[in-house]
């Protein structure tokens, strides 16, 4: 039976194995090899060794582009997690109206990114957008948002919070998994609501926070759609993926773009490993 199950197991996972070889392993190896070649239009590519990588690191723009990517991930991810958790705490009760509020907060997160960008381009328009009307009414003046190189990245961070309902929903699932008896025991011991949050809720949510954090950082570093459709002035919002896309498909520098994409991969791999290792210090798994 054991041997039969092993063979059947292999048969069942065979679509994945084929897929991983054809659509992941092969492209990855091919991509690495591409990064050592120079694309020359109609001519066959020429082997240039580490030339693309050297060029990438010598280019002044590279630092700006990776800074833009990190700026977004470092700001948008923690803010998103804190907001998501805060809203989940606000919604985690048995009041009848909670369902309605939950729906209203969750739904923007399912709006397709392109549609979201279109909506926010108008909303944040410095000429008559509703945000402009509000900031002027509050005496905050008329910020240029995407038109202002100092504000453009921050604008994406603000836009991203509209989609915070997705993590709110995941946190709600996590909250509902915490046994009520823990809170009852803590209340008998005289723990107040703040103490209960820090001693029960937060520690037991750390696995949820951890996975949300990991996925959000990986996703945040790959920001594309907003930065591509609605870029800020000069290169103030060019993210690594936008630059890779443009190098490959606008300037046809496939080798250079591949090198940049390999660096992005190594960065994400490194950061993921660091997050994964440090989780042991702060993530609490119930046994």
């Amino acid at each position: 039976m054991r041997k039969k199950e092993f063979i059947y197991g292999l048969i069942f996972i065979s679509p994945l194995l084929i897929g991983l070889v054809v659509f992941t392993a092969w492209p990855l190896i091919y991509g690495i090899s591409l990064s050592f070649y120079e694309s020359r239009g109609m001519l066959p590519p020429r082997f240039v060794g580490f030339q693309n990588y050297i060029e990438l690191f010598q280019r002044g723009l590279t630092a700006t582009i990776f800074y833009n990517g990190f700026y977004y991930a470092i700001l948008a991810v923690p803010i998103g997690l804190a907001l998501g958790l805060g809203l989940a705490l606000l919604l985690n009760n048995n009041f009848k109206t909670s369902g309605l509020f939950r729906t209203m907060i969750y739904l923007p997160s399912v709006v397709p990114t392109v549609a979201m960008v279109m909506v926010f381009l108008l909303l944040f328009s410095p000429t008559g957008g509703i945000i402009d009307i509000i900031t002027r009414a509050l005496g905050l003046g008329s910020p240029g948002w995407l038109g202002d190189p100092n504000l453009a990245k921050l604008t994406y961070v603000i836009w991203a919070q509209w989609g915070v309902g997705g993590s709110t929903l995941i946190f709600l699932g996590g909250l509902q998994n915490i046994p009520r008896s823990y809170y009852e025991a803590a209340m008998i011991d005289g723990a107040g609501s703040i103490r209960r949050f820090f001693s029960i809720t937060l520690p037991l949510l750390t696995p949820t926070i951890f996975l949300n954090f990991l996925f959000a950082v990986i996703g945040g570093l790959q920001l594309f759609t907003q930065a591509f459709i609605a870029p800020g002035p000069a290169n103030s919002t060019t993210t690594p993926v936008v630059d890779i896309y443009q190098q490959a498909f606008s300037y046809f520098k496939f080798g250079f773009a591949s090198a940049e994409s390999i660096i992005l991969f190594l960065l994400i791999l490194g950061i993921s490993i660091i997050i994964w290792i440090t989780q042991k210090r702060w993530v609490i798994y119930e046994q």
Binding site: F23, T24, P27, L28, G31, L214, F215, I218, L221, Q222, F224, V241, I244, Y245, S261, I262, L264, F265, I268, L269, S272
Partner: peptide, 8 residues
């Protein structure tokens, strides 16, 4: 999850 889409 760690391989960026664009790299592939």
């Amino acid at each position: 999850t760690m391989i960026p889409g664009i790299t592939l």
